[in-house]
Amino acid sequence: MADTKSNFIKPLFDYEGRSRVVEIEGLNKSFGDNHVLKNISMELYEGENLVVLGRSGTGKSVLIKCIVGLLTPDSGKLEVFGQQIPGMKSYQMDAIRKKIGFSFQLSALYDSMTVRQNIEFPLKRNVHGLTQAEINQRVEEALDNVGLLYAIDLMPVELSGGMKKRVGIARTLILNPEIMLYDEPTSGLDPITAGEINELILQVQEQYHTSAIIITHDITCARMTGNRINFMYEGEFVLKGTFEELSHIDDYRIKPFFEYNEF
């Protein structure tokens, strides 16, 4: 995996002079006997969309949960903005978390709150001294950016799967994150809605200048949103490259992803 440098110099995305916002080296994580992450190494460059592709249960979610400190890895280097995450004090962790937006697989909207209250929630607790008018304005702006201003007073149960994803993304965008982590942004959605979410991810990259890790098993999502793809197989990154490069690789582990989605 020492040759990753050759993989990211692509005409589509210019890596020249970009800093690494996430750096991971030799990361391991086990649950009891279940060795989930095996010697993971990767880096996320400022402004890029990095796709982590792999089938269910290989440890993709575990990886990004380690990045935000929801899980603690057993060993390895895990730096975000140059700071080692495991063992960090909680106030430092909170400061880092403010700069990271996490879009959960099930959207994780707070059931007991309206869309507006959901989006206000992180804002009120992280940015102090805002007037109610300023809060309202920022909430509406964030919702408008995901195209859901009309749903502002609905409850989460009244939303469709795609709408929930959008609100979840708006809730993280309200704090202007520098890094976005998307956990299966398109899973469980119909192809049209999935396509809209993919476009939203690109729009967020452009508009908010975020660096993003997009976890998926959906090859269309990987093709549309990713500047680079790291392919995970049983807790290891076995292949890295652009979509173009990976689609030509003759490897039994990645072939199925391309074959099942050809039409």
Binding site: R97, I100, Y110, F121, R125, N126, T172, L175
Partner: peptide, 20 residues
């Protein structure tokens, strides 16, 4: 039941990563 379903639908994790 309420906190249990918040836990399994990752709402508690979401709260944690949003700095609350």
């Amino acid at each position: 039941a309420e906190l249990g379903s918040m836990k399994v639908t990752e709402q508690i994790d979401a709260m944690e990563v949003s700095g609350t």
